[in-house]
C-alpha cells in the first residue's frame, strides 16, 4: 500500500511540476536572474505548495502512525550546521548553472530530454560520491553529531 500511494504521489508531484512550468530550466534561471528580466513564477509555485503543505504538516506532526498504519518518519533535526550550509551552497551553484533540481530533472527524463539524462547521471554520481565520503568520515562525524539528529530518514 505504501508503494501504491508513493506512486500516486510521485505522479501528482510530477504533474504539478509540469503545470507550474518548473520542468523548464529557463524558468528556473529566469527566477534566479534578479538582475535581468525577472520571472517570479517560482515564488508562486513555492507559495502554493507551502500553503498546502503547511496545513498537512499541522495534522501530520500530531500523529504517531500514518494513515496507512506505518511509522511517521518526519525530521526532528533543528540545528544549522556546516554540512547544511556547504551542501546548500554547492546545490545552489549547480541549480543556477543548469536550471535543474532533482525533481524536475527526473520528470524531464520521463519526458525524454537528453540533457536531463546527462544531468541525472552526474547527479547520481555526485550522490554516490557523497555516500562514499560519508562512509569514509562516518565515525568522525558521529562523534560530533548523533546520527539520529544528523540524518533523520535521510531527508531535510
Amino acid at each position: 500500500m505504501n508503494a501504491v500511494s508513493a506512486f500516486a504521489v510521485g505522479l501528482l508531484f510530477g504533474t504539478g511540476l509540469i503545470i507550474s512550468g518548473m520542468t523548464d530550466p529557463s524558468k528556473i534561471i529566469g527566477f534566479l536572474d534578479i538582475a535581468g528580466a525577472w520571472d517570479p513564477s517560482l515564488a508562486f509555485v513555492m507559495g502554493g505548495a507551502v500553503l498546502a503543505g503547511f496545513i498537512a504538516f499541522r495534522f501530520a506532526r500530531k500523529r504517531t502512525v500514518s494513515f496507512l498504519g506505518g511509522a511517521m518518519y518526519l525530521p526532528t533535526a533543528r540545528h544549522i550546521d556546516r554540512p547544511l550550509i556547504l551542501g546548500g551552497l554547492a546545490f545552489g551553484v549547480g541549480w543556477g548553472l543548469a536550471g535543474y533540481c532533482p525533481g524536475p530533472a527526473v520528470v524531464s527524463l520521463g519526458a525524454g530530454q537528453d540533457k536531463a539524462v546527462v544531468f541525472l547521471v552526474a547527479m547520481i554520481a555526485g550522490m554516490a560520491l557523497y555516500e562514499a565520503a560519508d562512509r569514509h568520515f562516518h565515525a568522525r562525524r558521529r562523534r560530533r553529531v548523533p546520527r539520529e539528529l544528523s540524518d533523520v530518514a535521510g531527508d531535510a
Binding site: N2, S5, A6, A8, V9, G10, L12, F13, T15, G16, L17, I18, I19, S20, G21, M22, S41, L42, F44, V45, M46, G47, G48, A49, V50, L51, A52, G53, I55, A56, F57, F59, A60, R63, V65, S66, F67, L68, G70, A71, M72, Y73, L74, P75, A153, D155, A156
Partner: peptide, 23 residues
C-alpha cells in the same frame, strides 16, 4: 499556472506525509 501547479505539488507533499509518514 505556477500557483496552481504549486498547490498540486503541495497536495502531493500532504499525501506522502499523511499516508506514508514521509517527507
Amino acid at each position: 499556472s505556477s500557483l496552481a501547479g504549486g498547490i498540486v505539488i503541495g497536495t502531493a507533499v500532504a499525501m506522502l506525509a499523511l499516508l506514508n509518514g514521509r517527507i
